Amino acid sequence: MSMLDREILALMRDVTETAILPHFRSLSASQIENKAADDVVTVADREAEELLAAGLSKLNPGIGIVGEENAHANPAVLDLLSGPSWIIDPIDGTNNYAGGTGPFGILIALADGGLAQSGWIYDCQSGRFCAAHRGDGAYVDGERITAQTSGETPPVAAISTVFMDQERRAAAMKHIAPHYRLVDIPRCAAEQYPRLALGENDVSIFERTLAWDHAAGALWLNEAGGRVARPDGSPYRVDEPDRTGLIGAASPALWDDLAARYAVFEA
């Protein structure tokens, strides 16, 4: 494990113990706010983001910081994604967290030129730590891993339709769902991406593709030997905040199969 990985892990653990777990299952109604339709924010999200931003600023003071909650309050922050930037999701899976369930985690990425260069995923409940650096492979708890499929026929799919409108949801169920065994989505990218590399799920479709949800996980799965890309095959970029649609798969072959079906779904 690199020195940077150790420093990021220590920061994630500290913020989990200081700001996240103390509020878990003890949030009052006034500490949970509706940020958008089917999307909430808690006092723990804001506290965690402040602590993470402060810690990352110490690691590299010259890099911009794009946190989910700060960007929601001030969309101009998204302009930083075109240059060197830390990208923070302080609690990924906030709906689960606010409801007193899991999974939930912390996502951090280091991006430059619109592409994630490093990414880290921390499971706040189990302590699982995933790390990746562009061109250097993917790791779980310091051990290099290679993505593996479930081995099931049909393949296992977790399709996120939460942010699809009714027409797109129906089209996905008609053109894509029959070819897979569908499983529930965890509503947590910090859990979904590991599932795609660790033999639990084979493919996923993500409709909303905000940088704090996908920068770390997309890099990590690609470095593990799976594939994450836009449905047209173009790479995922963190500086495209308004673009929708992303496919993740445990192998390039599974990605190709789903992308072909996605093209029919989009037609």
Results as ranks from 00 to 15, higher is better:
residue 230 R to Y: 08
residue 246 L to Y: 11
residue 12 M to G: 15
residue 60 N to D: 14
residue 103 P to L: 07
residue 174 K to N: 08
residue 63 I to Q: 08
residue 184 D to R: 09
residue 246 L to A: 12
residue 156 V to N: 04
residue 87 I to S: 02
residue 232 D to T: 08
residue 241 P to G: 13
residue 30 S to P: 00
residue 181 R to S: 14
residue 89 D to E: 07
residue 255 W to E: 06
residue 4 L to W: 00
residue 56 L to C: 08
residue 244 T to Y: 15
residue 189 A to R: 03
residue 34 N to Y: 06
residue 143 E to V: 13
residue 197 A to K: 08
residue 90 P to M: 02
residue 10 A to E: 15
residue 85 S to V: 03
residue 39 D to M: 10
residue 1 M to C: 10
residue 148 Q to G: 11
residue 262 Y to C: 09
residue 152 E to H: 15
residue 90 P to K: 05
residue 210 L to E: 13
residue 191 E to V: 01
residue 73 A to Y: 03
residue 44 A to R: 04
residue 143 E to C: 07
residue 30 S to N: 12
residue 234 S to E: 14
residue 60 N to I: 02
residue 121 I to A: 08
residue 147 A to M: 11
residue 228 V to H: 09
residue 250 A to P: 01
residue 60 N to F: 07
residue 20 I to S: 04
residue 206 F to Q: 11
residue 258 L to C: 06
residue 194 P to K: 08
residue 206 F to L: 12
residue 27 L to D: 05
residue 246 L to I: 10
residue 52 L to K: 07
residue 128 R to C: 06
residue 38 D to M: 12
residue 222 N to I: 00
residue 153 T to H: 13
residue 13 R to V: 05
residue 199 G to D: 11
residue 188 C to E: 05
residue 92 D to W: 01
residue 128 R to G: 09
residue 264 V to W: 04
residue 18 T to D: 13
residue 50 E to L: 14
residue 79 D to G: 15
residue 224 A to D: 10
residue 126 S to N: 12
residue 171 A to S: 13
residue 176 I to H: 04
residue 221 L to S: 12
residue 5 D to I: 00
residue 41 V to C: 06
residue 96 N to V: 04
residue 219 L to N: 01
residue 90 P to F: 00
residue 67 G to A: 06
residue 147 A to I: 10
residue 144 R to M: 13
residue 144 R to T: 09
residue 164 M to N: 09
residue 228 V to E: 08
residue 208 R to D: 12
residue 162 V to S: 10
residue 19 A to P: 01
residue 246 L to R: 10
residue 74 N to M: 09
residue 111 A to P: 03
residue 116 A to I: 02
residue 33 E to D: 11
residue 36 A to G: 03
residue 106 I to V: 12
residue 82 S to H: 14
residue 21 L to T: 13
residue 172 A to P: 01
residue 267 A to V: 00
residue 252 P to H: 11
residue 165 D to V: 02
residue 224 A to P: 04
residue 89 D to V: 01
residue 95 N to Q: 10
residue 67 G to W: 02
residue 221 L to D: 11
residue 179 H to K: 09
residue 109 A to E: 04
residue 79 D to A: 15
residue 81 L to S: 06
residue 5 D to M: 02
residue 142 G to D: 11
residue 166 Q to S: 15
residue 220 W to L: 02
residue 214 H to S: 10
residue 106 I to F: 06
residue 120 W to M: 05
residue 62 G to T: 04
residue 81 L to R: 08
residue 115 L to F: 12
residue 232 D to Y: 10
residue 32 I to C: 03
residue 235 P to K: 10
residue 31 Q to P: 07
residue 69 E to T: 05
residue 202 D to H: 13
residue 186 P to V: 05
residue 47 E to G: 00
residue 204 S to R: 08
residue 44 A to P: 03
residue 54 A to R: 14
residue 122 Y to M: 10
residue 96 N to K: 07
residue 40 V to L: 00
residue 19 A to S: 14
residue 263 A to T: 14
residue 16 T to Y: 01
residue 204 S to L: 02
residue 61 P to V: 00
residue 4 L to H: 07
residue 49 E to P: 09
